[in-house]
Design a protein around this nucleic acid. Structure first.
Length: 562
DNA sequence: AGTCCCTGCGCG
DNA sequence: AAAGCGCGCAGGGACT
């Protein structure tokens, strides 16, 4: 049996661990069923129906989380009208709030205005439903067939079937990801908190001491300069007060000044960021029911197709060893960190067919080292670690449109290396002279994208650019977007495959960071799981990287690694 | 107190 | 004349 079901739920709230489904709306053929009591027999019947039909619904991640948590029902054949709408819009509606809601989509495709006002919807709380509530609950599924039909046509017309399939396959994995959550080592966190607070105090004292020794006069009760270092305006004031000719406290400026206060300010900012941005945030996000961090992952959060993560954002966790170690496996478990090796540069190689890039990856050698050797005109064997690091920034930066002036600043900022603007220009010229096929690919990609104000990547995804930007901005998006978006599609493909393959392992998918997936797995089966993860991720990459290998690096440890 | 914008910075 | 791309979040500051 494989019918089609138009589907929605009403719940007592947004939290699948705390709140409950109170009503399930199912439209099958001409009939709409509203289910509000859940006996064993009803659950079993619903499982049979929902797991063996095409489920059409709006933002199914939400409903599927509740279905899994409350009834262990796991539909897998899906048509999500929310994600469909984002794809049809070329990713535009991903970042325009309110444009892809059920209300907006219904209005757009059927002309019907749904009543989403609070008084009607506030209390689907298990008590007797009013006639009005029944009407609106039924309306939410009644509008779906028309939306579904029209979106299906749109997806076909626009050639989005393949990427839509990737997205639908990824939904169960996103549900898995959000329900999994991450373990947090509380003791470790308290230790790091203390250490970081000490470092902030030290850095603050150092900055203020330097200010005082440089003759700053406005002192507080403790005889130290009265200034909030976190305030750019105040900091600018005191720095000018000791004779520094600056007009901003931005990072480039701070890096550029020849004065000991620069380093101290940077250290202060770094530690302050660690404390307030991360260390103090994580305990606030530990869920009362699960005892784990339960972030939100938005599968279509960016216009390029990448995920976004929030509350907290688990895609911006510092590399700092002391922080990553806080995400530590429970007893008897291990963390598997799996990431694509240089996936974006491999995609650049694939789409540009630059012979030197292809050769490097087919011989399993080192592109950053090659670039360093070409730019510095010396053998690869003589390239130092620092030179290789610098070349890494070169490969990414120049491919995506980085200019000489910015390259100079970036080099100073990231690696503390001073080069002249002429030298920067020379590097840029040498780079493109050595990779001529890449250069011409990039030029075409940039021009075409700027002309069309959008790109289509190798999996068929359309990324439309926002209006009103300068030509050079569209050109740079044209260089970057085909690469970034295909990388996202590869990771999503892998997630969909792994959702199925890891079912027997009772594993948790605990994080997804663009080109990296993190799992928590029973210790006794970790090696076996790691092999499957590597194989499936690489297989997903191979669907698009036809000319070169796709490599995934897998690490098994006590905590999240990178 | 809430909203908005800006700078600044963490990640890919 | 020159300009890498994509995010979320904290804190300051201006405004209502």
């Amino acid at each position: 049996m494989s019918g089609i079901i138009f589907f929605d739920t009403e719940t007592t709230g947004l939290d699948p661990f705390k709140d409950k489904i109170t009503l399930i709306q199912i439209k099958q053929g001409n009939k709409i069923r509203l289910v509000k009591t859940f006996t064993e027999a009803q659950i079993s019947e619903m499982r049979d129906v929902l797991e063996n039909s095409l489920i059409v619904g709006h933002n199914l991640k939400f409903d599927l989380k509740f279905l899994k948590q409350q009834f262990n029902i796991n539909p897998e054949n899906l048509f999500d009208t929310y994600i469909a709408e984002i794809l049809i819009s070329g990713g535009q509606k991903a970042r325009q709030k309110g444009t892809a809601t059920l209300e907006a989509v219904t209005k757009q495709y059927t002309g019907i205005q749904l009543n989403k006002s609070r008084d009607v919807r506030s209390s689907f709380n298990g008590s007797e439903l009013t006639a009005e509530q029944i009407k609106y609950a039924a309306m939410d599924v009644a509008v779906l067939p028309e939306i579904h039909k029209k979106q299906q046509e749109q997806l076909k017309t626009l050639g989005l079937e393949k990427v839509f399939e990737i997205e639908m396959g990824c939904i169960p994995a996103t549900v898995w990801l959000e329900l999994s959550g991450l373990p947090l080592d509380k003791d470790g966190l308290n230790r790091v908190k203390g250490e970081t607070k000490k470092k902030i105090e030290d850095a603050e004292l150092k900055v203020k001491t330097i200010l005082k020794e440089s003759g700053y006069k406005n002192l507080d009760l403790f005889g130290l300069p009265a200034v909030n270092l976190g305030s750019p305006i105040q900091l600018l004031g005191v720095m000018r007060g000791i004779g520094l000719k600056i007009d901003s406290t931005g990072d480039e400026v701070i890096s550029g000044i020849d004065h000991p206060i620069g380093k101290a300010i940077k250290e202060y900012r770094k530690q302050q960021k660690l404390l307030t941005g991360f260390i103090l945030k994580y305990p606030e996000h530990v869920h009362k029911v699960t005892g784990r961090i339960q972030p939100t992952f938005n599968q279509v959060g960016t216009n390029t197709g990448r995920f976004t993560s929030s509350k907290p954002n688990m895609q911006q966790v510092p590399h700092d060893k002391s922080i990553r170690a806080l995400f530590k496996a429970g007893k008897g478990k291990k963390i598997i960190t799996a990431d694509y090796s240089q996936i974006e540069l491999r995609i650049i190689a694939e789409v540009s067919q630059e012979p030197k890039f292809l050769e490097i990856y087919n011989n399993n050698s080192d592109l950053h080292r090659l670039t360093a050797s070409l730019l510095l005109n010396k053998p690869e064997s003589e390239i130092t670690k620092e030179e290789r690091q610098q070349a890494k920034a070169v490969n990414f930066g120049f491919a995506y449109g980085l200019g000489a002036q910015s390259f100079k600043e970036k080099t100073k900022n990231d690696y503390d290396i001073d080069i002249s603007i002429e030298q920067a220009q020379e590097f840029r010229n040498t780079f493109f002279k050595n990779y001529p096929v890449l250069a011409s690919y990039l030029q075409t990609a940039a021009r075409t994208a700027a002309g069309q104000q959008q790109i289509r990547n190798k999996s068929g995804r359309i990324v439309r650019f926002e209006q009103g930007l300068e030509a050079w901005q569209y050109e740079n998006m044209g260089r970057n977007t085909p690469i970034q978006s295909l990388s996202a599609d590869i990771t999503k493909t892998a997630m969909g495959r792994l959702y199925h393959k890891l079912k027997p392992f009772n594993a948790k998918l605990i994080n997804a960071v663009h080109d990296e997936l993190v799992f928590e797995v029973q210790e006794d089966r970790v090696t076996e799981a790691a092999q499957i993860i590597k194989d499936e991720m690489e297989a997903a990459g191979c669907e698009y990287l036809k000319s070169i290998p796709c490599i995934v690096e897998v690490v098994m440890e006590e905590s999240w690694q990178k």
